[in-house]
Design a binder for these strands. Sequence first.
DNA 1: GTGAAAGCGCTAACAC
DNA 2: GTGTTAGCGCTTTCAC
Lengths: 339, 339
Amino acid sequence: MAIENVYNKNSLKKVAEKAGVSIATVSRVINNSPNVNPETRIRIEKIVKDLKYTPNRVAKRLRNRNASGNLLGVLIPDIQNPFYIEVLRGIEDVAYKKKYALIVCNFSQDETKEKLYLDILQSESVDGLIAAPTHEHDQKVINVVKTGLPIVCVDRGLVDADVDVVLVDNRKGAFTAVDYLAKKGYKRIAYISGIPNLPSSRERELGYRDALDANSLPAYDELIRYGDSRHDSGVKLCDELLNLSKPPDAIFTGNNLITLGALETIHKKGLKIPDDVAIIGFDDMYWSISLNPPLTAVRQPAYEIGKCAAEQLISRITNPDRPTSNMILKTELMIRNSC
Amino acid sequence: MAIENVYNKNSLKKVAEKAGVSIATVSRVINNSPNVNPETRIRIEKIVKDLKYTPNRVAKRLRNRNASGNLLGVLIPDIQNPFYIEVLRGIEDVAYKKKYALIVCNFSQDETKEKLYLDILQSESVDGLIAAPTHEHDQKVINVVKTGLPIVCVDRGLVDADVDVVLVDNRKGAFTAVDYLAKKGYKRIAYISGIPNLPSSRERELGYRDALDANSLPAYDELIRYGDSRHDSGVKLCDELLNLSKPPDAIFTGNNLITLGALETIHKKGLKIPDDVAIIGFDDMYWSISLNPPLTAVRQPAYEIGKCAAEQLISRITNPDRPTSNMILKTELMIRNSC
DNA sequence: GTGAAAGCGCTAACAC
DNA sequence: GTGTTAGCGCTTTCAC
């Protein structure tokens, strides 16, 4: 390797030499420790500035394993899902303010990948982790919790593990949507579910059933389809639904990506929304209004979820003994023209 | 701090003790170095497995500054832009295959933030960096290039710096779009530009002008608006355009987010696409077909851009002396129904 | 108020 | 084929 990365030749040692003090003193100045002569401090601070010295984060992390490395891990199931992007934005804004950097790992709902990333994250000695586990019994994440690493779960909780959780009331959100549909007079309301063993999918199904019940509508098995929370799944399951001998008059889609997929199918079939079939989605997007037609949807405060999660995490890192908490945020029905 | 992060008490030392050898030998086994007795190797491998030993990435990075830390930095201007998400996916897929983790930094087109992240990335001793600089004279990135850190630029090049670049032929892409519009008979074609000092914005403007020229259409100053590459900017500038005494009959939008913003305005005004005004966008999205109406757009192979960038970067890390290269990928006009 | 030194986990040069 | 050791940059204990 001929090329040498010349960056950051600066080190405590360099600064110390220039200041004629020991590295310990410089370290104290950098970390605002007490017990350093005010004059020495000023002198060193000047040199630090001149040399543009910045502490080496890697060395710092190696030294103090589990704290102050200013590095957070984020484990996301699907980066194509705009919901997680918004969550990520929320996390990022808070992290930035507190000078934390983020290692973002997108495991694409692949458990092998999830495992690898979890290992990497620990091996990188992150100070804490924000994760959306594959499901509530996700042993891989639970194991990490057991190591004592501060963790906040978003979107999905964890059974048998004492962690902070930030999510929305999925059941209620789904209820609101389906109830709205029922009150509008739709009779055969279908539900396209995301991955069925996700707590959020199940909760939404419960909300869906609650609403049917509340409106004395029967729940037809053939109108409930289970997919994998992805675009393709929305395309396919919607197609199945619309090919039924008695197709639904309205569809409640279990997430963002499914909604988009379902829309694609509906358009391909040349069906009119909402006249031929109505659609209401879980998850709103900032461009939902530009969809065809403007989409009625249950909005999750995704940005806020991320923000809260990051705040919770940082608070836990600085105060590990705080009892864990569950934050349940509210959803909001965004009424537009798709039903 | 009462809680102790118990993770990874494992270390070379632990394994070495258990195997009754020195840490050097264990290190050799881990790194598949030659010169180790096959039997010893097998014995150690077993212990490694039993102990679930995984090398500490932080220590490794501290030791070998500029290589083999298996960590890459990604510097992205706007994570809300689906284009960058696709790029990120491409990067991530390649990185994962080669066991690299990613530190993803979204600077939200904020130069202060960009600077901070650049510092952090270097301070983390990443092996290499994929970046979309704010503009082609981005001194902050150029400085990093000068340190010798392997860098690949995406979407935007860098003047006066010898780096690998992966992008598309923006001028040609824009030409294709506007030429298509002109051939369709539109006479007053507007252009909503992203941040004007971005090379991509300028190239797209050139392509736009080329196409007007080629079709003997005049370029009206009032029909060219410059924004900041964001959704809001699309909303606002489109509104200005449509309030003109002689409004455009077609709009060419400079990127994803601007397109979405423009659509929002057009819908708000109750205008019909393409009858009242046509629209063609730079950047395609996988859900463009579900927009109102299905959007005609210039598709950038975003995923491939990310993929190529990551491959280029890894190749440069392993072979720093390879001459730099420019990869220019092709765009594709996705014809749907918005004009 | 300051310095010397140990040690975080690892690699690589060198010795045997 | 294997072991010893220095050192990456940092924090922290213990002297002074």
